[in-house]
Design a protein around this nucleic acid. Structure first.
Lengths: 347, 347
DNA sequence: ATGAAAGCGCTAACAG
DNA sequence: CTGTTAGCGCTTTCAT
């Protein structure tokens, strides 16, 4: 391996000068600089980031801690958003999948400390995620997709309440009154807020919220399927459903198909978190699209600003989701079921 | 930050002893060891991986260089395969998306050298990918998904020829004779081999290969769509198509739908690379499933074996794909077109 | 079995 | 403007 000493010798200067040239210090003789650069080229010299990190006590690396890169396009897009900013700012990324496991998460947070990373972008696995070691080592942290109470960290989230509101208001506008909700664990801000958006929208429209039409599942495919099966088995099943993430939506669609029912005639469906294949489904699936890439971008920018010296109060950036209307939530056919469509007893 | 010196002082021993305890050296007094461990706990000491890397000249980090984590589940699964092995062996991962850009790839390879990573798992962006700097720095490299000529690196690939063979043989068995192929750039081993599997299978079945039914696109959605449009515009269009990756398959399906045609009645379709939503499509999509997670797993294992001292010749691990038969390639209806279905003139 | 001390490759005072 | 030198935190001879 060729080191800075080799370059210094080849260029006939001291290592300090080589270092200055490489780090573009202002006061270096241009002629010496070019000699050094030539030596660097000739020797194919690559400065050791490890040595540099040890010396400067800052590592041009971030840890990106998420739940699971495989759960669909969402985290993949977030990751790319973060990476694109990191790359152009000269940072590299440790990819850390926690699988929502607090132990694995803690272990990756330890890694971040041990590697002395410059910053961390993290989707907390739950409300008990401990950022203490990062705080005490002075490592800036940006939370993405989920908030954490009282940690004082910059946070970037999607307006989940708004997204759920858009979805449910759209269903109500389509003439659906018996609207169910399949949400995720209420311990997650996403699961809770999407439910809250659902409930509030119904209330504000004067439609009562029935607990039996609310199912709390686990954000996974099998959970969504089981929840939908339960809804369908009800004495008075709903006529539309808002499902709080894409994996559960897949499960719900399966359950509907298995029951021999049609979307949207028998059950209108709106999912949360758009997927590129939503329009390929028959019928095409209405979803609340999240700006996942932008989520990553904004997180990275907040982190960068901290690394560039900003030290103000914690910032919360809330990004708006977008309702993508497709056929799975087409308005209720008035002609087909006039009795139901007009039998609005709650008004 | 608390260092090894703090621990040594707290435990009343030398830093050497602390180091020995932490690295589980054989000859340490158990009593001293426990004193040290206590001090470590009390101080919440985390050894600096940076300093350790500098000193030992090996970094417990791998670089994982792929094209783009967002192109669907494939790379996400590969990544998880690699990460799961890396994590349990105590390694962390740099995620490096090249977007097939040779410059970005080169820049990430430089990073790997500069960070002195322990190993690299890489999907080469093309045949000109230069592994020289890694070779000369003694960093083991494992190629995944795509081969590279004469680089002497361990490689893990899917048997693309076999996969294409399975797909095309299945279509032929279903009574389809006019089978087209939309493949990727022939400069990639995947694009070339999937085409080769297609062509050979037709030849061996005595079915002539027509160049006009072969389209070379770019592995992207728009490319697949354009290619399919061209095929449909032909004077004698095919009756079935084998599409060499999932993004292009999505494009092809769109083109078919836009032309007002039905799958499989007007056009049978088999895609390459399965997706979790294949069975949600109407009709469900037949695909050649790749063992993506296992691809990552095997790559990581090969890398580990090198790090554990194996220094034999380069190994090539070839994993078999699996045909997942669904309705998009249902056998030709005998009743509808008896003349074609029985008109097997080559026998 | 333990400690003292050197040094991994680099940067940043401090001199000059 | 450039060189000398100390030292980042750790591991590893070399003594003892």
């Amino acid at each position: 391996m060729t080191t800075i000493v080799d370059v210094a010798r080849a260029a006939g200067v001291s290592t300090a000068t080589v270092s200055r040239v490489l780090n573009k210090h202002p006061h270096v003789d241009p002629r010496l600089a070019s000699v050094v650069m030539q030596a660097v080229k000739d020797l194919g010299y690559q400065p050791s980031r490890v040595a540099r990190s040890l010396r400067t006590r800052r590592n041009r690396v971030w840890a990106l801690v998420i739940s699971d890169i495989r759960t669909g396009p969402f985290f993949a897009d977030v990751v790319r958003g973060v990476e694109d900013v990191a790359y152009s700012a000269g940072y590299s990324l440790f990819l850390c999948n926690t699988d929502e496991d607090p132990l694995k998460e803690a272990s990756y947070i330890n890694l971040a400390v041990a590697e002395n990373v410059g910053g961390v972008v993290l989707t907390p696995s739950g409300p008990r995620t401990d950022l203490g070691s990062l705080a005490s080592s002075g490592t800036p942290v940006v939370l993405v997709d989920r908030k954490l109470p009282d940690q004082g960290a910059d946070t970037v989230v999607v307006d989940n309440v708004l997204g759920a509101t858009q979805a449910v208001a759209h269903l109500l506008a389509g003439g659906y009154q018996r609207v169910a909700c399949i949400t995720g664990p209420l311990s997650t801000t996403t699961g809770l807020q999407r439910y809250q958006g659902y409930a509030r929208t119904l209330e504000q429209a004067g439609v009562p919220v029935h607990d039996r039409w609310v199912r709390v599942a686990d954000f996974r495919e099998a959970g969504g399927r089981a929840a939908m099966q339960e809804l369908l088995a009800l004495a008075e099943p709903p006529e539309a459903v808002f499902v709080a993430n894409n994996l559960m939506t897949v499960g719900a669609l399966q359950a509907i198909a298995e029951a021999g029912l049609e979307v949207p005639a028998d059950m209108a469906v709106v999912g949360f978190d758009d997927v590129p294949w939503a329009s390929l489904l028959r019928p095409p699936l209405t979803t609340v699209a999240q700006p996942a890439y932008d989520l990553g971008l904004e997180s990275a920018r907040l982190l960068l600003s901290r690394l560039e010296g900003y030290s103000g109060a914690a910032r919360l950036v809330t990004l708006a989701p977008t309702l993508r209307v497709r056929e799975s939530s087409a308005p209720k056919a008035q002609a087909t079921r006039p009795a139901v469509a007009t039998g609005d007893r709650d008004k």
